[in-house]
């Protein structure tokens, strides 16, 4: 078992990806965010003979009726945007996610309270670590996050016999939290982490020694108010650090 603390850089906030293509993680397919040439514009080749993707301006090839029809959908999209912020639950969640539904998921990273543990099978109090982190985080508030949202993050007590990473992401300030058991993001993996609780604003997680490696999630619930945050715990394979 190693005593080396795993440190990974907090992902940098990238510029918002407002375009349609920016939504689809092209970095997975190209280098440095560029689209690989072999995956460039595809010939549409449709049998209606109405042009293809090489046309720069949408609907140049179409008649006035379709151009007018396009205004219907553009107004719809603009109308939805004008309706923000939504005052309902989803609106609150979206706001808490730093504009998640506004397309910039990278803002999430700015709200992450992140800590790592590669510890022996004993309880480790990480509140001090969190306090240091939050002090730094407060100095650089996320543009899309509501002010003070990070104050809701609970302290963390962790018990694990294997290397793990824990992240607590808070959508909004919250009181009187409770925690769900952590379920795997792999639907074929039935094992869960059930010893999860919140006592006096302290999140306690005990990871069984034989917990299969993988990523486990659970919501932090504010009594009577619904989801307020997410706990993500990665059980790392031995020797992965």
């Amino acid at each position: 078992m190693t005593q080396t603390r795993l440190r990974r850089p907090v992902p940098e906030r990238t510029t918002p990806k407002r375009g349609v293509l920016g939504a689809f993680g092209q970095k997975e397919w190209g280098q440095n965010g560029q689209i690989a040439p072999e995956w460039g514009a595809q010939p549409t080749g449709h049998p209606l003979g109405l042009g293809g993707a090489e046309t720069d301006t949408p609907f140049d090839f179409l008649d006035d009726q379709v151009r007018e029809a396009a205004q219907v959908v553009d107004l719809h999209i603009q109308g939805e945007a004008a309706d923000q912020p939504d005052t309902g639950l989803w609106g609150a969640l979206s706001a808490g996610y730093g504009g998640l539904s506004g397309a910039d998921l990278s803002a999430l990273a700015t709200q992450v309270t992140r800590t790592y543990a590669d510890v022996a099978a004993q309880w480790v109090d990480l509140a001090g670590t969190l306090k240091d982190y939050l002090t730094r985080a407060a100095a650089a508030p996320a543009p899309a996050a509501p002010q003070g949202a990070h104050h809701a993050a609970p302290a963390l007590s962790l018990r694990a016999a294997c290397p793990v990473e824990v992240r607590i992401e808070m959508f909004r300030p919250a009181m009187a939290l409770s925690a769900q058991p952590l379920g795997s993001d792999d639907p074929a993996q039935p094992a869960r982490i059930t010893e999860v609780s919140v006592t006096h604003n302290r999140l306690c997680i005990s990871v069984p020694h034989d917990q299969p490696p993988g990523t486990y999630y659970g919501l932090l619930i504010e009594d009577g108010q619904g989801p307020a945050g997410v706990v993500t715990l990665d059980v790392l394979a031995e020797g992965s650090i």
Binding site: V20, L21, F24, Q26, W29, G30, I35, W39, G40, A41, Q42, T44, H46, L48, L50, G51, G52, A53, T55, P58, F59, F61, L62, D63, Q65, V66, A69, A70
Partner: peptide, 23 residues
């Protein structure tokens, strides 16, 4: 005819939307 034009616009949008998606 109008529905065909709308289909043409859909295919145009498809070309833009899936431009970076592998075949």
């Amino acid at each position: 005819t109008f529905s065909q034009s709308m289909a043409g616009a859909a295919i145009h949008e498809f070309g833009r939307l899936f431009e970076a998606v592998p075949d």
